[in-house]
Amino acid sequence: MASGSQLDGKVAIVTGAANGIGRAIAHAFADEGAKVVLADIDEDAGEEVAAEISDRGGEAMFRYCDVGERLDVRNLVCAATDAHDRVDILVNNAGVVSREGDFLTLEEEEFDRIIRINLKGHFLAGQAVAQRMVAQVEEGGEPGTIINMSSINAVVAIPGQVAYAASKGGIKQLTEGMSLALAPWGIRVNAIGPGTIQTDQAETVNSDEEAKRVLLSRTPLGRIGKPSEIASIAVFLASDGASYMTGQTVYAEGGRLSLNYTALPLAKKKDGDKEKEV
């Protein structure tokens, strides 16, 4: 493990840390000297990531947490403070995509599931950690920072992921509201808005050449992003290098938002009686 310096001694909670972007962020934070508290509902994978970090000389612990459950979130924050006495960084990364595609037939329960995890989860974790951070400042400690995980879909929607886009748009506004509310204590709140990143959620692109062709046609850099590229942004936002940034969403999407057209029509591929959006 490389000796880090940007986050030396900081205590960071990362939700959704068992896989994908969350896993990459947890590793990157540990590499920069942070003590990482990983949270997820996937206990086996979460414990595995904590072990990976420890094996490389870092400091990490895992705690089960369903971010949509207030008690789980409170227990997570208590576990972090019991172990380390404080929390300096929160990365609100836990999120899911919709299992249903068609807006006209989208079930209420599925819409509620997406909002509960993606948006309510950010609120619950953000509020619980912010309360702890405010107390730390009032006790003479340094202000902390919160990083929310939004998406390019906060700006550009996908017909087959209406609930997901709504949740990510909400996270953008939640980030701005939190940043204003917490500014008096010097606590910074920013967000990251990834484009398509090579995670399990993007697995369809790997297995469907047409889907990949359409995706890359509207991505000027011509490739899919890597979790490590999002993790590097999280490290920056958590560091003193971003000390005058708050209320911002940093989009890492290969240039897609700069396009004023779609190079190819939105692809719809029949899969039985359902359509898959890409």
Score class of each variant (00 low, 15 high):
Gln127Lys: 14
Thr199Gln: 11
Gln173Lys: 10
Tyr164Phe: 11
Thr196Met: 11
Ile146Val: 11
Phe123Met: 12
Ser151Thr: 04
Val156Thr: 08
Asn190Lys: 06
Ser150Gln: 04
Thr199Tyr: 12
Arg132Gly: 14
Gly177Tyr: 06
Lys172Asn: 15
Ala191Phe: 00
Ile197Gln: 05
Glu138Val: 10
Asn153Val: 12
Gly140Ile: 02
Ser179Lys: 12
Gln127Trp: 11
Leu124Gly: 10
Glu138Thr: 10
Ile146Asn: 02
Val156Asp: 13
Val129Asn: 07
Ile146Glu: 05
Ala154Asn: 10
Lys172Pro: 03
Thr199Met: 09
Asp200Thr: 10
Trp185Pro: 08
Gly121Glu: 07
His122Tyr: 10
Leu180His: 15
His122Glu: 12
Gly126Asp: 03
Gln131Arg: 12
Gly141Pro: 08
Asn148Asp: 14
Met178Val: 13
Phe123Leu: 13
Ile192Tyr: 03
Ile158Trp: 02
Val162Ala: 15
Pro194Ile: 02
Gln131Thr: 09
Glu142Leu: 13
Gly160Ser: 07
Thr145Ala: 15
Lys120Gly: 09
Leu119Cys: 08
Met133Ile: 03
Glu142Asp: 15
Val129Cys: 11
His122Ser: 14
Leu124Gln: 11
Arg188Met: 04
Ser179Ala: 15
Ala128Gln: 08
Gly177Pro: 09
Val155Tyr: 09
Glu138Arg: 14
Ala181Ser: 15
Thr145Arg: 14
Asn190Ala: 01
Leu124Pro: 12
Ala157Phe: 02
Ala157His: 01
Gly126Thr: 00
Asn153Asp: 14
Asn190Gln: 04
Gly144Ile: 04
Thr145Glu: 11
Ala181Cys: 12
Gln198Gly: 07
Val189Ser: 08
Val162Trp: 01
Ala154Leu: 05
Phe123Gln: 11
Gly121Leu: 09
Thr145Pro: 13
Ile197His: 04
Pro143Phe: 06
Tyr164Ser: 08
Ala128Val: 04
Gly186Asn: 02
Thr196Glu: 10
Gly170His: 00
Asn148Gln: 10
Thr196Ile: 14
Gln127Met: 13
Asn190Thr: 07
Gln136Lys: 07
Arg188Phe: 00
Val189Leu: 02
Ala165Lys: 01
Ser167Thr: 03
